[in-house]
Design a binder for these strands. Structure first.
Lengths: 332, 332
DNA sequence: TTGAAAGCGCTAACAT
DNA sequence: ATGTTAGCGCTTTCAA
């Protein structure tokens, strides 16, 4: 059997309370007994039972991460970096795939609250307002990741989507494009990216036309169809901003089917700067987010809330970066 | 406060033991009280505390999944399908990134054993023999995923790597290629794939030359370099089998840098059939594994072990499938 | 068919 | 500085 504090206490000739105090570094214990207890724990290969201490209200060192769509590599990146940082800090990540489905979101949340995870990082759209306010009300630590809720007094760490959209569009404009399309899904981030797009257009004195904006599901095939409607216009755009790399690649495929060369006849830019950018031909220009820092910040923020029960709302927004590759060029 | 069995018992006018029995469907309880208790639990929105019951030796409904490299989309696919099935069955997945690093593997395993996950699915190379036998000895439920250990009497669900390698090579041979290279990493699966490759060559009466086999790390850049050594040979291969899609794409990039057209001057085939296959140009032929079924089988097998303490070793091996796209063509 | 009670391993208030 | 003790919420033997 695995040793318990009782075993340690017995061997050390002290009470379990003392052992517990040593483990948690609490109360005042003489250096001598402390030393002794450490040694004994070592010898007996003692490992505290997390369950038991969690039952007493301590934390479980588990964090749930809700992610909408594992098919999009950017989410795998989120996971990777969040897990990395969690690992460093002794926190495990429980991965929850939601498919942007409110029911799945709810199911995961209730289940994992029962299982007493210490907090949630939500990278999913999370349309379920009710559940969210329930979490807030119950003071469950939550941080939104790459999905804001400005109206909701909830912590978040995001990339500046508006600015990203702006930069992407501005880059296209600097290449003399004047008719620029955009393909996006209906998420809040994409709305922001579109806002940046519109704003860039305006500040360049260009008009933002409604028919240049197409909203569809965030799947390559859907994006391809959406791009098709743009490209089949008699007055077609000479550049398209795909609101994430998946969609941008969908655009490239639509172009290829129509024998339009990228970038000569159509410039394309994406968002997320995933590995996919470097394997398509031509390589895809994109907007990079600092995934690593974002992930670290999110975990650190959450753990801070968990351990210090800190309750001040924070909204961290980090700047994205333009990465120019070969899918964008001067309008011919 | 959330209600406990005590609350339920009090309201129902029974003992906690009775409530517990109803919850677990154990012992004999009259239908009447059963009914009543169910109703009360419903009304009070009772949710059992998993921690407490786990402390008494029940399961935590948590499974750890060890994955080597989140940058390879195939692993995201594993995760996705395993999580899917887990979700259906009420099991949460704790995701552990190992980077094929034995220390990280060990760290995760010890940590999660402390946290009392019910079992492990190991999709990582897992070089740490010692730890593995420790797990076996302690009768911790483990199933190996897509990584076999024939010598080790441990459950596994894998794809038939040998057969996959055979099919890929045979396909190339059927296109009249005679000098076929292969790029692989040093994992067991890749060794099997190479065995299939060699065997296909032999059965076609072709010679398997050692200098046609290059082992390197499973990264695109490394594969590109490795492929370079093959392509720069005066007597270069006319086809290359990349032991996974990442590596195959590395091969394609090496070819592009040398102005060799795929498939006209070089046929390339991959393995895993990830989404990447359809976004590269030309689209990459590959070997598909039934990820969905594989994931389901792994979870089901593990849960079976957890719940029934079944202990018969099973090794499920599923057949892969050849997917022909445009990166492979008849030798010119 | 039901209940009393011990205990899983740990923590924390309260004593000493 | 250290110990006593009462739980955390649940399961399970044993008795009724």
């Amino acid at each position: 059997m695995k040793p318990t504090i009782y075993d340690i206490a017995k061997v050390a000739g002290v009470s379990t309370a003392t052992v517990s105090k040593v483990i948690n570094n609490k109360g005042r214990i003489s250096d001598r007994t402390k030393e002794k207890i450490y040694q004994i724990m070592d010898e007996m290969r003692y490992r505290p039972n997390v369950l038991a201490s969690a039952l007493k209200g301590k934390c479980t060192y588990q964090i749930a991460l809700l992610i909408p769509d594992m098919d999009n590599p950017i989410y795998a990146q989120y996971l990777k970096h969040i897990e990395d940082r969690g690992q460093e800090l002794g926190f495990s990540i429980v991965m929850c795939s939601t498919d942007n489905n409110p029911e799945k979101e709810a199911k995961h949340i209730t289940l994992l609250r029962q299982k007493k995870v210490d907090g949630f990082i939500i990278a999913s759209k999370f349309s379920n307002e009710e559940l969210l306010s329930e979490l807030l009300q119950d003071e469950v630590p939550v941080v939104l990741f790459a999905h804001e809720r400005p109206e909701m007094a909830i912590d978040s760490v995001t990339v500046d989507d508006y600015w990203g959209g702006f930069m992407a569009t501005e880059h296209l404009i600097s290449l003399k494009h004047e008719k620029i399309g955009v393909i996006a899904d209906d998420s809040i981030s994409c709305r922001e990216r579109i806002r940046g797009y519109t704003s860039a257009l305006r500040s360049a004195g260009l008009s933002a036309e409604d028919n240049m904006i197409v909203i569809t599901r965030s799947k390559m095939a859907d994006a391809e169809i959406a791009a098709g409607t743009l490209l089949d216009l008699t007055d077609r755009p000479t550049a398209i901003f795909g609101c994430n790399d998946i969609m941008a690649i969908g655009v490239m495929q639509a172009a290829r089917k129509r024998h339009l060369t990228v970038p000569d006849e159509l410039s394309v830019i994406g968002f997320d700067n995933t590995q996919m950018c470097t394997i398509v031909v031509p390589e895809l220009s994109s907007i990079a987010m600092p995934v690593h820092e974002l992930g670290k910040k999110a975990i650190d923020m959450l753990i801070d809330k968990i351990e210090r029960q800190a309750n001040l709302k924070q909204n961290i927004k980090m700047p994205p970066q333009l990465v120019i590759r070969n899918s964008t060029s001067k309008k011919k």
